[in-house]
């Protein structure tokens, strides 16, 4: 803790430890709740006389097996991982996960490419209309996906000039996601490029490099942290996207995780709670993993874009 002058322990507890503790409980409780529900049997989930905070059957089995030093896989499977097994074996969850990763990765790469080039142009090059482009990119916030999805599904279903139909394919989403990713990457990277001293590429160009060479070999490596955090943001935003995926995709096998989980594990009035929760947890893992490695970059990325 940063030393604060004249602050006793009691006061510190009251203004620092306790609030922080409550914030962490507040943010993490739903995840605990998902986990607990995912390892309870359906019978236990619907039993109102037991304490819902503890998965009784599963805990009992684990304690029993630890006490007797006897690992009983099938029992563990039946008492703890029943829903996980169902999710992975009897639904198309793995397919949904593959679709999500594929779509998110490809649209992130497209958006990073378009974002890097346009951000570099806006940050470094003086050309007529640069300001207009800058405002235009900013103003795309005016048309969020929820405003665009009805006409865009028409456009994706019958692409202008080429008359292709990308509905119900991953490519429909790969084309749609850059609409919110490119403005975002451009905005973030323009700020980042502006923090890099101009002299770097000027020196390179005096030494005979062309501007493109200077951009690719000198500026891009320096801007890597910014590119990385823009890429992370873009990946998260695509993994999080729901409305386009809900409207554009109708075959079960082509769905992404969020849409698949909501539409296939809730059937009318029947909720497969265990599977819903295990699916939600499993679907969150790719994003959570990336962040646990790069959380410092994430903060640095925001700081960079704010200063710029």
């Amino acid at each position: 803790m940063r030393p604060q002058i004249g602050e006793g322990f009691g006061r510190r507890l009251l203004v620092y430890h306790l609030p922080l503790f409550f914030f962490i409980v507040f943010t993490l409780f739903p995840f605990y709740w998902m986990f607990v529900t995912s390892i309870k049997s359906t019978h236990e989930t619907y039993n109102r006389s037991v304490n819902p905070f503890i998965p009784v059957a599963c805990t009992t089995t684990i304690v029993e097996q630890v006490r007797t030093f006897h690992v009983n896989g099938p029992a563990l499977m039946d008492d703890c991982l029943f829903h996980w097994r169902y999710l992975l074996r009897d639904t198309l969850f793995i397919r949904w996960l593959q679709n999500t990763l594929f779509i998110a990765l490809v649209s992130t790469f497209i958006s990073l490419f378009a974002g890097i080039t346009s951000a570099y142009a806006l940050a470094r090059l003086k050309f007529r209309g640069a300001d207009t482009f800058g405002v235009l990119i900013f103003v795309t916030y005016l048309v969020p996906p929820t405003l665009l999805f009805i006409p865009l599904s028409d456009v994706i279903g019958d692409l202008p000039l080429v008359h292709g139909n990308l509905l119900n394919t991953p490519w429909g989403l790969i084309v749609a996601y850059p609409t919110f990713l490119v403005p975002f990457c451009t905005w973030l990277l323009t700020g980042y490029f502006r923090t890099i001293p101009k002299e770097l590429e000027e020196v390179a160009m005096i030494d005979g490099a062309t501007r493109i060479q200077a951009m690719v070999r000198i500026i891009l490596p320096v801007a890597l942290p910014g590119v990385l955090s823009a890429g992370m943001f873009a990946f998260t935003l695509s993994a999080n996207e729901f409305l386009y995926a809900l409207v554009f995709i109708y075959d079960n096998a082509n769905k992404t995780v969020p849409v698949g989980v909501v539409s296939e594990l809730i059937k009318g009035d029947v909720f497969y709670w265990g599977e819903l929760m295990s699916g939600a947890l499993l679907g969150s893992i790719p994003v959570a993993l990336i962040y646990s490695f790069f959380v410092e970059h994430y903060v640095a990325g925001i700081t960079g874009s704010v200063k710029g």
Partner: peptide, 8 residues
């Protein structure tokens, strides 16, 4: 992803 946590 929002949808997934909203399920909780």
């Amino acid at each position: 992803p929002t949808v997934l946590s909203t399920i909780a």
